[in-house]
Design a protein around this nucleic acid. Structure first.
Lengths: 168, 168
DNA sequence: CTCATATAATTAGGTGGCTAATTATTAAAT
DNA sequence: ATTTAATAATTAGCCACCTAATTATATGAG
């Protein structure tokens, strides 16, 4: 994400804008503050999760499995939903299996395939993590009323639709 | 970062809220969308930078050096400003030095210390990267007027002041 | 002056991402 | 029926981050 602690001041931005006249100072400022806060939130989330022996990658796998009717999915489906590669998912499942939070089951119909199932220990781990996460997140967002939250969504969507400018 | 592609629907959130009554659904939704967009922005930025042989870590080092009057700083100061450890900064400087974008200079007054200086090649690299970055960012943010940008700052600040809820 | 402590940078080793290559199996085309 | 292509999972090796330990040097207290 954005590690940078030392965000540019208005003066620094103006100085750069002298050399690079393309610079849109308020756009840079909004962009950097957004990345900065998101990074802080992500680090804070990991801090919370690490108290329970998890980090985001493994935590999402448990949640994705809990969403399933039979608490079961495949590595490839999990990788797609979690937004990581299959290679990365193999590693995450390795770690979760080592900790006994999920188990791998062979599929008799397609012998290429593997099922991953949330174990009782995995469910129980979620049952201690999730209330803690929800409570902290509620407290974190307590300063925003419903109108603020809706307005935030709108602004994020506006930025999101401009993101392709980077990929052109 | 938030890798997760498959953000929970309202239904999924409600289902989880039945098991975990602490859940504040609109808070979770705002939180996840914020992390999601920031991740997409960060990936998009890296895409842009990688066209110029850089990623965020190395790019920030070059920018931090360019901010300095004499284009020079130390690994420890750079690490603090960039928000990474000194060990990580050693690696980033190694890479930049290998590419000839910065140079290490010994400090005669304190022989523990090393100076890192932006080379002409480093400045020239920035002179091609920055206009590209600024133009794309301007286009990305074109959907937000100044009022939106100010409102976004306010909302981010509100969330930021709640972040300690995660670290308690 | 010397010893303990602090500081600067690096090295070593771990984690969670990535891509590319490999292995096993299934499906499809000739 | 056999070959070819696609798919599922894994392995191997790279990168950027981390913490902890190490090396070299500087500083301050007795």
């Amino acid at each position: 994400m954005l590690q940078l602690r030392d965000l540019p001041t208005k003066e620094t931005l103006k100085k750069f804008a002298q050399r690079y006249p393309q610079a849109d100072i308020s756009a840079v400022s909004a962009f950097l503050h957004l990345l900065r806060l998101a990074t802080d939130l992500s680090v804070a989330l990991d801090t919370c999760l690490s108290r329970h022996g998890l980090l985001q990658g493994r935590w999402w796998v448990l949640i994705l499995l809990m969403r399933e009717e039979n608490l079961t999915s495949t590595p490839s489906a999990l990788a797609d939903k979690a937004g990581v590669t299959r290679a990365t998912m193999t590693g995450l499942i390795d770690g979760l299996e080592r900790d006994g939070l999920v188990e791998r089951l062979l599929d008799s119909r397609d012998r290429r395939s593997v099922s991953v199932k949330l174990t009782a220990a995995g469910q129980s781990r979620l049952d201690t993590v999730m209330p803690d996460y929800y409570r902290r997140l509620h407290d974190c967002m307590a300063g925003l009323n419903e109108v603020d939250r809706e307005r935030l969504h709108e602004i994020l969507n506006l930025i999101g639709s401009g993101i392709e400018a980077f990929n052109r």
